[in-house]
Structures are given as C-alpha cells and as structure tokens.
Design a protein around this nucleic acid. Structure first.
Lengths: 148, 148
DNA sequence: TTAACTTGTTTTAATGTTAAACTATCTATC
DNA sequence: GATAGATAGTTTAACATTAAAACAAGTTAA
C-alpha cells in the first residue's frame, strides 16, 4: 500500500493516512454491503429505513439532510423502498409541497429484524480497536470532517 | 451526530467511531470531488489516470485490482477516458485477450498538471492531525481494513 | 391581485458501481 | 487436434449518485 508521490516525509505520511482512511471506509462499506444483501437492502435503503425507524416519519427534504444526499437521490431510494412496500408516501394536507414518508408494518418489521445484527456486526469490526483508540479515532475523524 | 442505538457504553462508542470514520471519508471524498470537477474528472477517472501515470501502461484486469473495482466498472471508466482522448487501448498481439491501457500525451499532460494540486489539497486536509496522530490513524485504519 | 421569489419533489442526463451472463482467446489434457 | 476449463474484456440490468432543469405549491412584496 502507499502513494507513489515524491514528496517529503510529512507529505508522504499525510497521503498514506488519507489512503488508509479511504481503504478502511471502503472495507467497512463493502462488509456492510455484503451483510445487507441477505435482506435485499442496499446501504442507502438501510440508512433511510433506519432514520425512519429511529426518528419517525419525516419528509424527503429532511431525510435528504439527515442522509447527506441530494433530493433527487432520495426520490429514487424512496421509490425503490415504496415498490417493495416497506415505506409509504403521504402528501401533507396543510402544505401540499411536503410528502411525509413513513414505514409500513412490513418495513418496521424488517428494520427491527435487520438492525440488531447490523449494529452487532459493526461493533464487532470496530472492536479491533480498544476503547481508548476508538476515542482517539473519533477525535481525529471529527477534526478531519469538520474542516472547510 | 451519533447513533440512536440503545446499547451499552462500549457499543455506543464503537458505533460512534464507525459513524465518525464514515463521515470523515465522505467529507474527504466530497472535497476531492469538488476539486477534481474543475478538471472535468471524476474520482475514479483520476484514480485510473494516476495509476497509469505512476505505474505505466497496464491491462484492465490489473487496473481493476489496483483500484479495487469490478472489471465491468473499469471498462466504463476507461471508455469515458478514451472518449476524451486521455488514454488509449492497445490489444496485446501475443495474447489477444489482454488490452494494454496507456496515457496519451494529452492524458499525461493533464495528470501532470492536476496531480500536484490534488496531493497538496489532501496533505492540507490531513494537516489538522499531528504527525503522531497520523501515525496512529494509519495504524487504526489498517487494523480495521485488514480483518477476516 | 399579480409578479417574483422560495421551497419540496420529480425528472433527466451523465457517471459510477456490482453481479451475472456473454464473447473471445488461450492452455492443458485426453 | 478436439475439447474442457481458465482468463480478459464487454454487456446488461439494477441501483446509486449528482447537478441542473422542470414542475408544483406556497409566500411575499409591489
């Protein structure tokens, strides 16, 4: 692994840290992907179901902000969940611009079944780090994430 | 930020570490995306050009392994680079199953122009961490990535 | 009241992504 | 040499993703 960039030691280190971070998130993502495939869910679909499960019904623009995805993308993801009968759209009667999305009973059952194993799976993977190391990782990642 | 999972302290910590890692890589990705958009390159296209630049011509199956992407995906990415005249395909004469992909002069010029700013950009973002912290991050990420 | 602006959702076009099926080519074995 | 199996690449179908444009509904200001 590593960069082929010809820079000084500090630059090489920074690029290697970047690559390591990206590879780690790729690995976690692909293990998530494999795990969810058993339930015929994509990562995005799972994310939407999870948000609706833990936060209750919400309109697509809110979901879009929660999941950090574009509005057009949410339309597509909710479309696919709706086709499977896992969520339902409800046009708001007061302000007809809004569409409230909520889990169906089937969707609620599915997320309740899938979530615990999913969480356990992640906890398991992160357990290669000690509690102290996880704290450090959170600190580092937040600082990287919150730049502008 | 944080999970809504009702577990014990250790589980919550692990899930928060997971979420922090994913958010950080999302942030880095989206900044990469914005930066490369100026040159009309996607992250995948940049990755392919960079590999060909630093490692020289190679066939698609090797590229596929380097970039950790499926063969079908590489076909698409190389198609789009070829349409723009940045790379060229060459059928191997010895073994006609192989196609060697190489940068055109235009592609070489582009990657030479784009790469330094790109690397600098990443180094800059990672510089919110000290050298010691970057070392730790690399260690943590490698351990997360290399499980199973 | 109407025109202009704002906000929420959908559509469209382009790219990425995978898995699976397919074609072409090469190799080993009978 | 024919054939079975392996390998490289392409195609297809499905979903993800964005930006930008279109569309729908509500708000505001002249």
């Amino acid at each position: 692994m590593g960069t082929h960039y010809k820079g000084n030691k500090e630059e090489i280190r920074a690029l290697n840290a970047f690559i390591a971070l990206m590879r780690a998130s790729d690995s976690l993502n692909s293990r998530q992907y494999m795990s969810l495939k058993k339930s015929n869910l994509t990562i995005s679909q799972f994310g939407a179901l999870e948000a609706l499960h833990h936060l209750g019904p919400m309109c697509q623009s809110v979901l879009s902000k929660k999941l950090l995805k574009s509005g057009g993308n949410i339309t597509m993801v909710i479309d696919n969940l709706e086709k499977r009968g896992l969520v339902k759209r409800n046009r708001d009667t007061d302000d007809r611009r809004f569409i409230s999305v909520h889990l169906t009973e089937e969707g609620e059952n599915l997320i309740q079944k899938v979530f615990p194993a999913h969480a356990k799976n992640i906890v398991n993977q992160m357990s290669v780090l000690t509690d102290e190391e996880q704290k450090n990782l959170i600190d580092y990642c937040k600082r990287i994430g919150l730049q502008f």
